[in-house]
């Protein structure tokens, strides 16, 4: 579960079969980063070493689809490269062109026990919006 340090970054909401979270940020970049952290937090609850580095790239036609495609890249890395992401070291969001480039560090999955296997990102109840001076996202994950 999220620790105190993380409570402001994201929170989990009830959902019968799957997992649902909201993430927060002062900027759109931050809300994307914190959404990824919420995803990582569901997948594992231990520290992952920073031994390997991957670059990901995602595009969208609106902020929601950009979020879907961005988060999906992590599931693809886990399945195809056996790579567990630990931290996003560099994230560039082009809000106008709706694309994201990010560098991710992490480690090989075989050395860890995973706490949850996320099958897919979904559009169900998804949103990203600015409320006051804060950005907030909501995502339901298929487990």
């Amino acid at each position: 579960m999220e620790n105190k340090k993380n409570t402001k970054k994201f929170k989990f909401l009830p959902h019968t079969a799957d997992r649902k979270f909201q993430a927060f940020g002062k900027t759109p970049e931050e809300v994307f980063k914190n959404s990824a952290l919420a995803l990582f937090n569901i997948i594992y609850d231990k520290k992952i070493s920073e031994k390997k580095k991957f670059k990901i790239h995602a595009k969208g036609k609106d902020l929601e689809s950009l979020m879907y495609n961005f988060l999906e890249e992590f599931l693809v890395l886990i399945d195809s490269k056996n790579f567990l992401p630990s931290k996003i070291v560099n994230l560039k969001l082009n809000k106008k062109r709706l694309n994201i480039e990010a560098e991710i560090v992490g480690d090989s999955a075989e050395d860890y026990n995973i706490s949850e296997h996320v099958k897919a990102i979904t559009y169900n109840e998804m949103f990203i919006k600015k409320i006051g001076d804060k950005w907030i996202s909501q995502v339901v994950l298929d487990i």
Partner: peptide
Amino acid sequence: SRGFGHQIASDYIKKMEQ
């Protein structure tokens, strides 16, 4: 169908939405 089926579902949800 593991990640294979998950990705196919995801790909086509996006395509159909588009």
